[in-house]
Design a binder for these strands. Structure first.
Lengths: 211, 211
DNA sequence: GTTAGCATGTAAGGAGTTACATGATTTT
DNA sequence: AAAATCATGTAACTCCTTACATGCTAAC
């Protein structure tokens, strides 16, 4: 009984919620959705699918059954489809959020990726929890930095500075998101929001290295 | 034969290179040095120390032996000290860098933290390797983004944008560092170079803009 | 004299990767 | 028909965390 409480499961549930897929495609969509944020390998995906199958959240369809028509020739091997239990479990995971949804970088990232399916109230809780968490981290690191500044060489100091700025940027990003959420009930719910290619959009970006 | 090729070992070697310490203190210095970048627990530190002991890179001194005088009452339990082999191994790790030194976020971060002890040529190799790696990632993600943009909701898109900007920012940071290195800002090359505790140290600090 | 922090450890396990093994289908 | 890519999977291993167990010492 492996526990599988990881991010992968949530991500797979979310992707299969959109449409049934087979493993190979799933992995590509997964890594493409998460962008620079994270990447998974087959060695974790397939065992995860097997587990989810065992729990009844998904079913698999062999190559014989042709469910969806209008698909070009490509007949994939095994198509995984979300069950009713799977959908329910997904919604539960999205709603019953704990601190890990903002404490853990990965968890937060995946939760954020599915914000379009998340209730506004829950979104706000996650964004604010995340912001609080990062501000605590900033306080702590800044404090220990002022205590030990003189003992650090300039490269280490530079690493610290860059790290701090990364986190500060993420906080600013969260601030904007939170304002946006408060202002427009659901600012972007629809399609094709223009990602402004405006040259200088400030420049957030924390990412840096997750812990 | 546990392999222990991780970042922890390198970091511990580097910290013990400065001065002998006991585990508890080591862990605090570790997490304070790495700042927002990373954190370790005792559950990984102590086994690591045990391993390094077995390999002869460090020795342990019980509370009986009072090596350094002029220490206030605080008699710590076990003090770990780097051996000659340990020092050699550390220098080797810093010099014989492979791609993992720039592919892996953690590895890069810890290597960077010890740049003050790293040869200028090796520093440059790591910085440029890292930059190339990030630019490849940018290309890849940007390409797959333009292919699948319309299929993503606005939150997912926002996550992508934020991630991309994060990486772009790190590339700019690397650019500044590389320029700075080329300009010959090498602050210290040899042994026991005094790190000036000057408040607003110019140092090798590439960022013209003060934080 | 009890809470808080210092100090050292271990067992169990979580979450994933790498490298391998295997075969089908498309492209060149 | 060879090469590339699609597609599925497994075994072994890495590296670290959590939770626990245990005591010492300083502060209130």
């Amino acid at each position: 009984m492996s526990k599988r409480t990881g991010v992968l499961e949530l991500a797979v549930l979310g992707l299969l919620h959109e449409s049934p897929q087979h493993g190979y495609e799933l992995r590509k969509r997964l890594n493409s959705m998460l962008g620079t944020f994270r990447a998974f390998s087959y060695g974790s995906l397939y065992p995860c699918l097997r587990d989810m199958l065992g729990r009844g959240w998904i079913t698999e369809e062999g190559p014989a059954a042709a469910g969806t028509p209008a698909l070009s020739g490509k007949r994939a091997k095994i198509v995984y489809r979300l069950t009713a239990e799977g959908k329910e479990h997904f919604q539960q995971l999205l709603t019953e959020i704990g601190p890990s949804a903002w404490e853990d970088d990965d968890q937060f990232g995946v939760h954020f990726a599915f914000f379009a399916r998340t209730e506004a109230e829950v979104r706000m809780r996650i964004l604010e929890g995340r912001r609080r968490r990062l501000e605590e981290r900033l306080d702590y690191v800044r404090a220990s930095l002022t205590r030990t500044r003189e003992r650090l060489d300039s490269y280490t100091l530079e690493l610290q500075r860059h790290g701090l700025e990364s986190v500060e940027r993420e906080v600013r990003w969260l601030n904007e998101l939170i304002s946006s959420e408060r202002a427009g009930a659901t600012p972007h719910a629809g399609e094709s929001s223009p990602v402004s290619p405006t040259e200088t959009t400030g420049g957030p970006s924390p990412a840096a290295s997750p812990s």
